[in-house]
Amino acid sequence: MEILTAIKRVPETGAKVSLTDDKLDIDTTSLGFTFSPHEECAVEEGVQLVEEHGGNVTVLTLGEADATEQLRSAIAMGADDGILLDGGDDEWGPVGTSKAIADAVGESGTDFDLLLFGNESADTANHQVGVRVAEELGLPCITGIKELDVADGTATAKREVPGGSEVYEIDLPAVITVKEGLNEPRYPSMRAKMQARKASVAERTPEPHEGDLELVELEVPESDDSPAEVLGEGPEAAADVVDVLEDLEVV
């Protein structure tokens, strides 16, 4: 099986988010970078499927040149090679991103059986790049999957709904977007991380496309940071806790 997984470099924010002065971005001066848990599961699933059926996992990202760091993290998890679409520092919208990814798939010379995406990206959460890539390539697509089986060229994919799950069947080649919980992504070994540093990463410069949302500014939502009422500093606080529960009439 030839599998492509698409991941996006995003800052790893902690308890507080602060913005750059122009309010167009998160201030990342003291932050590390990662990719979404959904996409970690996409990579893990690709690697597991190749372990079972043979083949290759190619991991692709569109972003600044430093996004090779995330490609190498995915390669350390077991992906075979990487493609960096060097999009510079500017944020690409979902239309531009999808067209660039679809172009890169076409140019890669590989007939992918399965293209795995996150259900939504961690930062901009546009909820559409996977679907649009499928539309560009004329492939079938299902989103938000938390359980996946592949046998004889058909994928059986489950999506959670309140009170149960929906089961979809989809013939490969196909695009599937996934959610965290699909599997338990592995922690790469030290040795895998070292080797990933030497893995081949192809670089391309994608063609920009117009027609996305125009960002005006970002805003950190107000949160109520008034100090909590401290009920106590040990097990003797239990009586006050139960008072609170009684007042709220939940016990």
Binding site: A228, P235, V241
Partner: peptide, 23 residues
């Protein structure tokens, strides 16, 4: 703690059983 309305500053392994007992 900043984001909470109420807080207990203690080891959860001691507080949780105490709450269960009090209930």
């Amino acid at each position: 703690i900043q984001k909470a309305d109420y807080a207990v500053i203690a080891d959860l392994h001691e507080v949780a059983p105490a709450i269960a007992e009090e209930l």
